[in-house]
């Protein structure tokens, strides 16, 4: 395993992840998550839907970075058109405007930090190609490549992110025993590996997974309209 993958997946990576709950704050507010059992179901559902989609997009983004090459010699703007096209694939798979906004915000923050941590022409090209900020999985996949990771690593880190963010948010919001929550996460480890493998099965972008999670879409939209919000999403 590449040590860079650990850095990328670490919640201490300074890229704004601590401000996002992935729908968990709203789920807690409406009483859909009250304890570790509810949380486990929420996380399993999230991983199987938006988690898988995000992981597959990240793996594809990592492969774009691979194709663009890190020497940057061949093209003035390696992969600009490809970045825009893949970002549009992410847009098409994100139905809720609130989730689109949150994803682009996280992507912009990750890209800004990633470019300083792992400078690379491919990340520079991504920033120029999508100036408002790429979707989070695209930025994560591109940063993974810049850090020296393979597409499978990018998918694994993204899947991991998809469940650890909401899990930590639930610990903070409900005062759950953090050890209980980590046992839930450990129980999902085999699923993480399955999702990462499945994420790398497709090479044509139009065939990438597009699993929708209407409940998560609704949570994201309601969250944005809630008066008291401690998390961005």
């Amino acid at each position: 395993m590449d040590a860079a993958l650990l850095l990328l997946a670490d919640s201490r990576l300074p890229a704004g992840g601590h401000g996002h709950s992935g729908g968990a704050e709203e789920a807690v507010r409406i009483g859909a998550i009250t304890g570790p059992e509810d949380l486990a179901r929420f996380l399993r559902g999230r991983l199987a839907t938006t988690g898988l989609v995000a992981a597959a997009l990240a793996a594809a983004a990592c492969a774009v970075g691979e194709a663009a090459g890190d020497d940057g010699g061949a093209y003035a703007e390696p992969g600009a058109g490809a970045w825009r096209a893949l970002d549009a694939e992410a847009d098409a798979r994100t139905a809720s405007p609130a989730q689109r906004g949150a994803s682009r915000t996280q992507g912009r923050l990750l890209l800004r930090s990633g470019r300083r941590i792992w400078p690379s022409p491919a990340l520079d090209a991504l920033a120029r190609a999508v100036p408002e900020g790429p979707h989070h999985p695209i930025a994560l996949g591109a940063a993974a490549r810049a850090a020296g990771c393979a597409p499978h690593d990018a998918a694994l880190a993204t899947a991991y992110n998809a469940i650890t963010g909401p899990a930590t948010a639930a610990v903070r919001l409900l005062g759950l025993d953090p050890v209980d929550v980590h046992r839930v996460l450990a129980g999902l480890a085999p699923d993480l590996e399955r999702v990462a493998r499945a994420s790398c099965a497709t090479t044509a972008w139009e065939d990438l997974p597009a699993h929708a999670a209407p409940a998560l879409d609704l949570l994201a939209e309601q969250h944005l309209r809630t008066e008291v919000r401690l998390f961005v999403s």
Partner: peptide
């Protein structure tokens, strides 16, 4: 306004990304 996810100190010290943005 920046939301800090219940971690005001993190947002100004350990992970300043949202504030820089």
């Amino acid at each position: 306004a920046v939301q800090t996810g219940c971690c005001p100190h993190t947002a100004i010290r350990d992970d300043i990304a949202a504030n820089i943005d």
